[in-house]
Structure formats: structure tokens, C-alpha cells
Amino acid sequence: MPDPIHQFEIHPILPIKIFGWDISFTNSSLFMLLTVVLITAFFMLSMRSRALVPGRLQSMAEVGYEFVGNMLRESTGHAGMKYFPLVFTLFTFIFVCNMLGMIPGFFTVTSHIVVTAALAALVFLTVLAVGFAKNGIRFLKLFVPSGVPILILPLVILIEIISFLSRPISHSVRLFANMLAGHITLKVFGGFVVMLLGAGTFAALSPLPLLMAVALTALEVLVAFLQAYVFTMLTCMYLNDALHPGH
């Protein structure tokens, strides 16, 4: 049976060490770079003609732009559009990483907790910075919901603070766990097919896990998009908290 964990291993392609820090160019780095190159190439190619009446590629680029733009605008209003480049970068980066991961043999950048945690931390710190920069001390009103009886207010504030602090954890683990679990499941079902084929008469059963693997692949493509969407959507909502903490 093939090892379902093998696909998450990181090997250095070009070992680099600076001041004792290991910053080797690994297969993960390769796919990060590929993601950036693909996104840039796609937009450069699609927006090449800047046509008034868009062609197919340009339509895709514009739909992506409007999709993320509307997401951000609906959550944060006009004030949040300043953070559109960040949100758009997050969405395209995660989406393309997830989608590249769906190609057999490719590495899934977002299946490592450190990557998703770093992205979630980026969002969390941005929210904190924007929140305090825009609202000053009034940003702390975020933890004080209005219309709560004074007796249970301390408890509510405590809960609000804990929920706020746990945001980056749920934000990062959601993406990481989805990618990890999906790829393990796919690999396990793929392994079943191989195993059953080598098990004499049980080979007759091998189409069952194969069908399952096909169905799961479709599901995982959906999940790959959905998790990028969810990550971006949550980013928008957190940014909205930073911009309008009174709500």
C-alpha cells in the first residue's frame, strides 16, 4: 500500500543555509513560486488586450476580480476596498495552491500548518493593526457587545476575547485540515484500488474504491475552491470588525 503521508514530505531541491538558518529551496517553495508565476502569467495574458468587450480569458480575470471585490465590498463596505490587493492576493494564492495540489504528483502548499498559520497570522495582525489605527482604543468595543446585562458582561467580554484570539487558529486549521484530510483520503482510496488489484479474486472489487476516488476528486476540487473562498470570506469579515468594531 502506498504511503498516504508521503505526498506531504518536503525535500530540499536547492539547500541554502544563511546564518545557520535553513532556507532551502524545497518542493514547497517550488510550488509557491509556480503559483505566483501562474497567477501573474494568467493575468498578464488575459489582460493583454484590455478589450472593452472582453474575450474568454479576460472575462475570467474580470470575474475573479469582481468576485473578490464584491465579497470584500459586501462585508466591509467602501472603506475596506483599501485592503483589496491583500484580500485578492490571499484568494488567488490559496486558490491556485489548492488547485495545483489536485494534480496528481503535485505538492499541496496549503497542506502544511505553518503556511496556513502564517497566512492566518498575517490576517490577524492586519486586523489588529487596522483596528487600532482606525479606531484607537475604541477598537476594544469589539469585545463589548451592546445590550448585554451588566451582570454577565464580564463573562461575555471574556468569551469575546477568547473567540477573537482563537480566530487565527480556526482560520488556519480549517484550510490546513481540509487540504490534508482530502489528500489523505484520495490517496487511501487510490491505494485500495492498487491493493485490491493485487489480491487475486478481490480484484473484482477494485472498481468500487476507484469510483469513490473519482467522486472524491470532484469533491476535492470543490473543496479546494470552497476553502479558498471561506478563507477569503473570513478575512473580509475580520477586516470588517477592524473597520467597524461597533457592530
Partner: peptide, 10 residues
């Protein structure tokens, strides 16, 4: 290495 390259590429 992942953090470094993530920071660079992102």
C-alpha cells in the same frame, strides 16, 4: 524554509 519562501513568494 517554508516561512521564508512563503514570505518571498506571497
Amino acid at each position: 524554509p517554508q516561512l521564508i519562501w512563503l514570505a518571498l513568494t506571497f
